[in-house]
């Protein structure tokens, strides 16, 4: 059995009286590309928010690399090696693309340095350039983030997520709102990234992920409906009923 990088045990998240996540227990294998699928409102983003520390679970526990991380603060997640890109593009719009990534890299190294000029910390700048190049934005550094195309902004956000050198990278619908060409580029990027770290991706277009991921997790009404290889999922009657049945 391969090692689990993240284990969730009985994760439940309630918003007032509404249960968005119901007793979800699931493990993610290291260096495996996993996709979470499920119809809109299934609780996929909520699950990501909980395992990236954006808010604590109402009950349940989670372990990262064997360590109990339930109840840690959100900023500790990034420093520990869990990073996320958001379903709705979340960047620093008025900063340059380079500064967006540089400030993310900086968060790992010098947060309370009040003295040195930031442009003297060339190591951070080099790292930011390298990350921009990695996501296909080499040479776009000086542009203001808000002036970039939607697809470029999504890629920029992934570069920012990579800044903490995450061992677990969570991508919430990275292709949302993208044109077919942009989607193709993004899928290639994700496969490239998955070669070197654990990637978990939320996607509701099932066809997109079937071909590239090794494992699938299906959420429905906040509950874990099924998990397994793409073939297992295709063969799963319940999944077909609630999900595939709706027409692809």
């Amino acid at each position: 059995m391969t090692e689990l990088i993240l284990e969730a045990e009985g994760l439940t998240k309630r918003f007032g009286g509404f249960t968005a996540l119901k007793d979800v227990s699931v493990g993610f294998e290291r260096n495996c590309l996993t996709a979470i699928i499920g119809p809109n409102g299934a609780g996929k983003s909520t699950f990501f928010n909980v395992i990236s520390g954006a808010f604590p679970p109402t009950s349940g526990r989670m372990r990262f690399e064997g360590r109990d991380i339930t109840g840690l603060k959100q900023h500790e997640f990034a420093r520990m090696g869990i990073a996320k890109s958001f379903q709705i593009t979340n960047i620093f719009p008025h900063l340059s693309a380079l500064e967006n990534v540089r400030v993310a890299v900086q968060a790992m190294h010098s947060r309370f340095d009040l003295w040195r000029p930031r442009e003297n910390l060339t190591g951070l700048i080099d790292q930011a350039h390298a990350l921009l190049a990695l996501v296909g934005l080499g040479g776009h550094g000086p542009r203001l983030a808000r002036d970039m195309a939607h697809g470029e902004q999504r890629a920029l956000e992934i570069a920012m997520a990579l800044a903490c050198e995450p061992r677990l990278l969570l991508l919430d619908e990275p292709t949302a709102g993208m044109s077919p060409e942009e989607t193709k580029g993004m899928m290639e990027l994700i496969q490239r990234l998955a070669g070197e770290r654990t990637v978990v991706l939320v996607e509701h277009k099932m066809k997109l992920v079937m071909g590239i991921c090794q494992r699938l997790i299906v959420l429905h009404h906040g509950e874990l409906l099924a998990q397994g290889t793409p073939d297992d999922i295709r063969a799963n009657d319940e999944v077909r009923r609630v999900y595939l049945g709706q027409g692809k």
Binding site: S52, A54, Q74, H75, E76, F77, A78, R79, A83, K84, F86, N90, I91, F92, P93, H94, L95, E99, R102, V103, A104, Q106, A107, M108, R111, R118, M160, A163, C164
Partner: peptide
């Protein structure tokens, strides 16, 4: 730079660590 980031987008700054 951290202050600027927080002014720009507090939520993102937190997610960055």
């Amino acid at each position: 730079a951290a202050l600027e980031a927080i002014r720009e987008n507090e939520n993102r700054a937190r997610a960055c660590g």
